[in-house]
Design a protein around this nucleic acid. Structure first.
Length: 933
DNA sequence: AGAGTCACG
DNA sequence: GACGTACGTGACTCTG
């Protein structure tokens, strides 16, 4: 049924309502776990009123709730300051935002939001579509920006005050009719949204002028005629600003909407959808009211307080592999897509031919609607393994690959359907290969990471066994291992399906179990601001890769090989026999048994230790063999790990190297780079630094490197609250020299490099949870001297000792520590007996510092792509190395890029945290990474 | 598979 | 008083 005459469309301004409910209602938290739900409660009451109150002739036939999607819209391109001064979302409101979406869907209502558009633009578009089709439209909102839409069958209703707003009410407010509202707004401006308007002109004057001249354009053309000098001057001087203001306040009525108004037809309230949601929120009154209205039994609400970690496990149906469906045709797939739309969220998993997203092909897609309801959609399975002549033939019983993706695409890209994944970045990249942008997403791996970093790993198998008490089917059962390993497309569909669908099922179950704990354990903000938004950013960086000069690496490899051969000969001559220089065991025997050198220490395995420190000590005593071995080892390392291995990682089609970042690997919040690790490319030695020369920009471009200066020490100065350090950073002093001066009473202008070096080692030592032994080792000084240094340091900076003690005490009490941004790093080993106690204490001291630095650069990385786009720059972010970001940018835009990114990086802590020390960022450019750094 | 070594922040 | 230690990572090689 198409919308038209006799129909009545209600468009509810969801975002506006949430804010009003949040501020108007007293705070309310869910009894069982403290989750703030006041706004959700107010929102549900409003929805209920909508559903209940609309029974007469005036009842809507169609209804949709519209939400703002993100803050960035075309208006920011026109005017970057638009809504820029808005305070951040209150902490108590943030976790409620997704819940209001859920509430809308639970009430069986159409829930709409769309990337790049404000709710107002969507409302305008739908209102005009419905009006033009001959239907009546009521916009439920009190937002004055929507008043321009009133008239011709469109009216507004203030949902809270229950007041109708027609053309008369609009005129009473603006002094002009609805069609002139934008002109008045353009002149008057709006301080809340940062619309500039004409200074000195308010609504009254604006209305006067518009009534006289008709519209903004005519007014500006004839501005000279205005008698009042102030007004005339303001209009003439601010003409451009007024025109921009009009663009800002004018709602877009032609948004390319993803949902049609026909889909908004009102559905009857379904008890089985709405009651479980209300019960889960623990809204007793509303639950009972709705149950009564529907003639259904009200579900029992269990709101006994749950322990912070011992949340009651949801009752999940048992794993049943035979319940999984294999989807082989369009009709069957459509049923699952419809279910996803009905539910509003869906678990998704992909099966592919390999683990490297840049080379893997999509083999099948799994969907799970709820725990236990999952399917597998085979797409590219083959029979057998193929032969030398070409690929194997396509297996029977699969739907067309492209057709399936075209059917899935709208759902996968639909802003109103949440896609739940385990390790979302992987699937995001696989779908990106097919031109599909998966959004929005939730990631069970990252939910677990936000909750449990430090307690366990966050892979699916580990999470399933831990939280679902279920061991998933091992992939090896299907594809084998070692030489006989096959790829997933060669697995028979009937065998693949239970494994594949199970993964989506497990993901759905993990989400049900873990997601509610985010709010209960107060890490929703961590997840929402530093984990979830990072996924698409990293996916893009990884897919883009960095160009590497193969010839450069190849030449270095050859040169290293020659030098190594020479050293090997020399070493074996010195040893008096042939042996494997790469074998620490053989080397130890040569050095300490055969040559009888002093200092041989056996480790727990009974082998001599031949680490660099041992060899260096021997070399310093004048022994040539260990000195040669050190040289050999350096070359061996550079050759095998870098010049050789890196070449293998150059992608045949892109000519670039595509690393993969693990988001949930490091306990502290740091990223880790793998396959290849691009976070440990040599830089400390001259020889090694030449490897960085192989990392180059595309023709006409340059590499830009921006890195935080001393970020961890700055964070330490802030957290431990050390006035002298904070002041030194504010004054832009050499922090190590200043520390040395303070400790050793040497004036800054008499500082020697060696004294400064010692102070630097102490500064770093503090970050690591200093010990006399560690410092002595590092500086190669007697332990007593190291201890004296540390005592002196604590004496001069007493806050450091206090920070260390307090952090360990906090860890002992809570079994976790926290970064400034609320990231929790669990410290289960704290309080252990024996040598592990020291480890745990130092890790606890280090984690808030390292973790806060990691949080800051994560925040920067999330803000960089939109900032680059807002500045209309062509640059791309390529790599992250803990405190450094590397970019590729056309040469003529390099300076602008540095300016833009530096601003983002230096202000990345704001507004969540105000640091007492400035963050400073150094930038450089070059035709390779060595130059740029 | 684990230990040893060494590259980075 | 002894324990044995700098924090966080990943890749490669040897070895059993």
């Amino acid at each position: 049924m198409s919308i038209g005459k006799g129909h009545h469309l209600h468009l509810i301004d969801g975002s506006g309502f949430i804010f009003r409910a949040f501020h108007a209602l007293p705070p309310l938290t869910r009894k069982s776990d403290g989750l703030p739900v006041g706004a959700v409660s107010g929102f549900c009451n409003m929805l209920l009123k909508m559903v209940e109150g609309n029974t007469g002739d005036d009842a809507p036939t169609h209804l949709a709730v519209i939400f703002d999607h993100s803050s960035k819209t075309f208006r920011n391109d026109i005017y970057p300051q638009y809504k820029a001064q808005r305070p951040p979302l209150p902490e108590d409101l943030r976790p409620q935002i997704p819940l209001t979406r859920e509430a809308t869907r639970a009430f069986g209502l159409c829930c709409i939001e769309q990337e790049g558009w404000e709710a107002d633009d969507l409302i305008a578009t739908f209102a005009v579509q419905a009006r033009d089709a001959g239907a009546r439209v009521t916009i439920i909102s009190s937002d004055k920006d929507l008043m321009q839409l009133v008239g011709g069958g469109v009216e507004m209703m203030d949902g809270m005050k229950n007041v109708r707003i027609g053309p008369e009410e609009v005129e009473a407010k603006f002094g002009v009719g609805p069609e002139k509202v934008v002109d008045v707004q353009a002149l008057a401006g709006d301080s809340v949204d940062n619309v500039p308007g004409a200074p000195g002109i308010g609504i009254k004057t604006a209305a006067l002028l518009i009534n006289e001249y008709g519209d903004v354009e005519t007014l500006l053309e004839r501005a000279e005629e205005i008698k009042q000098p102030k007004r005339r001057q303001s209009l003439i001087e601010n003409a451009e600003q007024i025109r921009i203001s009009k663009q800002l306040v004018t709602l877009e009525q032609n948004v390319p909407v993803e949902v049609g108004i026909d889909a908004m037809e009102v559905q009857p309230l379904e008890a089985e959808k709405v009651l479980p949601f209300l019960a889960e929120m623990e809204f007793r009154t509303i639950t009972n009211r709705v149950a009564e209205k529907l003639g259904a039994d009200a579900p029992t609400i269990d709101d006994t307080p749950k322990g912070s970690t011992a949340g009651k496990e949801p009752d999940l149906p048992t794993m049943d592999h035979s319940a999984y469906e294999i989807v082989r045709d369009e009709a069957a797939l459509q049923v699952w897509i419809d279910r996803a739309y009905e539910r509003g969220y869906v678990s998704v998993d992909t099966e592919t031919t390999g683990l490297d997203e840049m080379r893997a092909g999509l083999v099948g897609v799994c969907l799970a609607i709820d725990p236990g309801r999952a399917c597998y959609v085979p797409l590219a399975h083959v029979n057998g393994t193929g032969d030398l002549l070409g690929g194997a033939e396509r297996a029977e019983g699969q739907m067309d690959f492209d057709r399936a993706l075209e059917m899935l695409r709208p759902m996968l890209e639909d802003a109103s359907i949440l896609k739940i994944l385990q390790n979302a970045k992987y699937d995001l990249k696989i779908f990106a290969n097919e031109g599909i942008t998966l959004t929005p997403i939730d990631d069970t791996m990252l939910i677990s990471y936000a909750l449990n970093a430090g307690l366990h790993t966050h892979g699916m198998d580990a999470l399933s066994e831990r939280y679902l008490d279920h061991k998933p089917i091992p992939i090896k059962d299907l594809i084998g291992s070692g030489k006989k390993q096959i790829t997933f497309d060669q697995v028979k569909i009937d065998e693949a399906a239970p494994y594949a669908a199970e993964d989506a099922d497990i993901t759905a179950r993990l989400w049900t179990t873990l997601k509610p704990r985010l709010a209960a354990e107060h890490v929703t903000t961590v997840y929402e601001t530093m984990e979830r938004p990072l996924v698409p950013v990293l996916a893009q960086m990884e897919r883009y890769g960095i160009k590497v000069n193969r010839d450069h690496l190849s030449r270095m490899s050859n040169s290293f090989a020659q030098k190594m051969a020479g050293l090997e000969d020399e070493i074996q001559k010195l040893a008096g026999r042939k042996f494997n220089v790469g074998s620490p065991k053989q080397l130890g025997e040569i050095l300490f048994d055969e040559m009888g050198l002093e200092g041989g220490k056996k480790g727990k395995t009974g082998a001599y230790s031949t680490g660099a420190d041992v060899l260096e000590t021997l070399a310093a005593q004048g022994h040539d063999l260990p000195a040669r071995v050190l040289d050999w080892r350096q070359l061996s390392k550079l050759k095998s790990t870098y010049t050789d291995a890196l070449q293998e990682h150059i992608h045949p089609e892109t000519g670039r190297v595509h690393t993969s970042y693990s988001i949930a690997g490091a306990n502290t919040g740091r990223l880790a780079s793998t396959d290849p690790n691009l976070q440990n490319i040599p830089v400390r030695t001259e020889e090694g630094r030449r490897i960085r020369e192989a990392f180059i920009p595309e023709e006409g471009n340059t590499l830009v490197s921006l890195d935080y200066s001393q970020i961890e020490l700055r964070i330490l100065a802030h957290i431990a609250d050390i006035p002298a350090l904070k002041q030194a950073f504010r004054d832009g002093l050499d922090i190590h020299a200043m520390t040395a001066s303070e400790m050793f009473d040497v004036p800054l202008d008499e500082m020697t490099p060696d004294v400064r070096r010692q102070a630097k080692a102490i500064n770093f030592g503090v970050i690591y949870g200093i010990s006399a032994f560690g410092l002595a080792n590092n500086l190669r000084i007697p332990r007593e001297d190291a201890k004296a240094f540390i005592d002196r340091y604590f004496e001069r900076f007493p806050g450091i000792r206090q920070y260390m003690d307090e952090t360990v005490a906090f860890a002992k009490e809570h079994k976790y520590v926290e970064t400034l941004f609320g990231r929790r790093i669990h410290t289960p080993e704290i309080g252990a007996k024996g040598p592990r106690a020291g480890f745990a204490n130092r890790a606890a001291i280090n984690a808030p510092i390292q973790g806060t630095a990691a949080d800051i650069i994560r925040r920067a990385m999330i803000r960089v792509p939109p900032a680059i786009e807002a500045a209309k720059l062509p640059g791309r972010m390529l790599l992250q190395v803990h405190d450094e970001l590397l970019f590729e940018v056309p040469k003529d835009a390099a300076n602008d890029l540095i300016e833009t990114v530096r601003d983002v990086m230096e202000n990345a802590a704001s507004p969540a945290v105000h640091l007492d020390v400035p963050l400073t960022v150094d930038g450089g450019t070059g035709s390779n990474w060595a130059e740029a750094h």
